[in-house]
């Protein structure tokens, strides 16, 4: 079935696919800030890059809450969002986020001021902050993958892609903050991550295409509609292919580093928006033997 034959019922009383619209753009920005920030922080933590750690913490502690609160219907009560870590990835993530910011700030303080402190303490803080950063980098993917409602989200590819995107965009951003030669040294790792992303995108398309009507519809939306130019142009070409090429061909060129960094970040940004926009609810079954397949 081609996309043109799918029935999108909009807000009508027709049976058909309905677009996911509960998580809007501000949620995408929040996700983006959280993942880029967590990735940057994590990478910077490994590289002991203070600027990156600070920027990462800032992104996670300001951008993410700002956009999340914009989305939230009752922002004054948002503290309640952490009450159910036993079952909700949102709660877990929120705790992870608080952990990352808390331990991260402590680690930073220790790194800057704590001359006398034993390295074990710092290591402990770093471990905790880094662990929490990984939670931040992945929990949104887990939250999405747990939605059986939006079939295209409902797979392990979501947290995996979150992690890879967080790390790759974090690394790309960190490389822009580091001296060019240090950055060039990291190029093989970025290349590896980008290859991973390419693989994840292929897995995503493949799994979606064969993942039942809802997921297939999302892939069709991604490849056959207005969204295709953003996906193929920005997410795939500018976000993966071009940076990979540049990083491989000219790892030491500052311009190439700049371009590939922007490309990775832009590609991820488009991906975050797209993945919300192509999410669809499946039509209710009709138990009708003559109904056309969907």
């Amino acid at each position: 079935m081609a996309i043109a034959d799918r029935v999108f019922s909009g807000d009508t009383l027709r049976v058909g696919y309905r677009f996911q619209r509960h998580w809007d753009n501000s949620m995408a920005y929040a996700f983006y800030c959280c993942e880029v920030g967590a990735g940057l922080f994590f990478v910077s933590l490994l590289l002991d890059n203070l600027a990156g750690m600070v920027l990462g913490l800032l992104l996670v502690s300001t951008g993410k809450p700002y956009f999340h609160l914009t989305h939230m219907g009752v922002p004054m009560k948002s503290w309640r969002a952490m009450l159910r870590p036993d079952r909700s990835w949102i709660s877990r993530g929120l705790l992870g986020l608080m952990g990352m910011v808390g331990f991260g700030v402590l680690a930073l303080l220790v790194m800057v001021f704590g001359e006398g402190n034993s390295p074990t303490e710092l290591w402990g803080l770093k471990l905790l902050a880094g662990g929490c950063a990984l939670v931040c980098a992945t929990y949104q993917g887990f939250a999405m993958s747990h939605s059986s409602a939006i079939a295209i989200w409902n797979s392990a590819i979501m947290p995996l892609s979150s992690l890879l995107y967080a790390l790759s965009s974090g690394l790309a951003l960190a490389m822009l903050l580091l001296p060019a030669d240090t950055a060039a040294g990291l190029a093989p790792i970025l290349l590896l991550l980008l290859l991973g992303l390419a693989l994840v995108q292929l897995m995503f398309l493949h799994a979606g295409w064969h993942g039942g009507p809802g997921a297939r519809t999302s892939i069709e939306l991604l490849l056959q509609t207005f969204y295709a130019r953003w996906y193929l142009g920005v997410t795939v070409t500018a976000g993966i292919a071009l940076p990979a090429l540049l990083t491989w061909a000219a790892p030491t060129s500052i311009l190439a580093q700049l371009l590939s960094g922007i490309g990775v970040l832009a590609g991820f940004f488009a991906w975050r928006l797209l993945i919300f926009k192509i999410g669809v609810y499946e039509p209710i079954m009709t138990m009708n033997p003559f109904a056309p397949g969907r």
């Binding site: 909009g10 807000d11 619209r21």
Partner: peptide
């Protein structure tokens, strides 16, 4: 048309 395309909350975005 508003209902069918359902722009913004309630539909497409």
């Amino acid at each position: 048309e508003d209902y069918e395309t359902a722009k913004g909350k309630g539909g497409h975005h």
